[in-house]
Design a protein around this nucleic acid. Sequence first.
DNA 1: TCCCGCATCTTACATTGTAAGCCACGACAC
DNA 2: GTGTCGTGGCTTACAATGTAAGATGCGGGA
Lengths: 230, 230
Amino acid sequence: MANKTTIRQKPTITTRTRTGDSNDARPRRTALSRDRIEVESLALIEEVGIDEFSTRKLGQRLGCEAMSIYHYFPSKAHIMDALADRLLAAMPTPDPGLSPAMRLRGFAQNWRTLAVERPRIFPWLSLHRRNSEIGTRMDDEIVACFYDAGLSPERASLGFRVLGYYVQGAALDEGSGYANGTSSLRPLPAAEVAAHFPRVATIARYSDQAHFDTMFELGFTALLREFGLE
Amino acid sequence: MANKTTIRQKPTITTRTRTGDSNDARPRRTALSRDRIEVESLALIEEVGIDEFSTRKLGQRLGCEAMSIYHYFPSKAHIMDALADRLLAAMPTPDPGLSPAMRLRGFAQNWRTLAVERPRIFPWLSLHRRNSEIGTRMDDEIVACFYDAGLSPERASLGFRVLGYYVQGAALDEGSGYANGTSSLRPLPAAEVAAHFPRVATIARYSDQAHFDTMFELGFTALLREFGLE
DNA sequence: TCCCGCATCTTACATTGTAAGCCACGACAC
DNA sequence: GTGTCGTGGCTTACAATGTAAGATGCGGGA
């Protein structure tokens, strides 16, 4: 989707003669930095969506040319990587004093919250391997909950995955409403759904935050019980 | 990632003078059709990945120019839509004679199988809203299992979602190994993981099909039980 | 004053989706 | 036969993308 009926932009006429502007009101743009680039990237992504997130638009928002960004990151993929790490790093670690089950609940809660607060980047993040140092550390803290609860390495590994499946699915759903990502170009009109698939139509009635919370708890505790935690 | 150290292609010199070629050995390429375009699209995506899937590469594979495809589909998004419907339509419907729980197991199995058989398109599909007619029908058949088991509309809706969360997460994981999608550009080397995060390293030991199956069953039956099926 | 290096910009190119229009060929009317 | 036309494909063109390669300006040390 490269074309979008856009208006040709004026070629910017870079006012390099900044020096001649004796008034030193310092309209000097904030200097670039990895940090600023990351912050603005996250903001831009939530604004325009991850598909429309481009280095040129980012440059515009930063007040620089697209290529200037490459002085701080060798590629767009490196930026994305940094964003993933930044989001993971920003997640609070559940209080180590809590029970394993409660800590797991905390991790799950964090993940679900992230899905809701950053719905445009979250689907990407959740499909991105968490195998950077910081992501691995987070996984380690999660498995640790199962070990702390006295599970064998095998049971702990299974628990990590099984609970993870559930949390992942829940967060993806909650983050973008009933379903995620692109939609069918010719979706069945709601009226048709109501008429022909009343059961499907009914599901939508339970899509508020309250239901998401109790629904999540329902499955989560069932799985915790399965592993003897709680 | 548009640039890829490619070699400039020869400009094809379209041999329009096909008529002069008296030998009518009919090297005439198979005619285009929606069906053929869909089939080749699916094949191409599994070959090169969904990001590298372009109308030009598709044209090459079909033996036509990219724009010829637009005679059959108004846009690439429409192709993707058709692929989603085709994949859903190809999924076998579990025998209606089976118990609701077993039918649900069948749907889940289908989904997981698809994830493994078409790993390159599956993550996209699973984030694509299933709100075309055919997708809605499938959802309806799934909720129907809960109704058939005697659940109230509310409980059925919750069950649909809760079980769905789990299946979705499981399929995404199984389809691409321990995690999905792009990977960190500087992943922690396995040796580092083994040294500093032995618990995480252990998880990988349970990533074969046998473990996936028992692991999946474990959580799935726990959730079924929670809803009183089985 | 000269020079150097860092940060930023310019230019350029391959690749993408796709709008707009062209053109060949077979089917039909006469 | 000779129009005429629609169908199915092709050509060209353009905006947008990531990014390689190199130019350019500025500030600071010699």
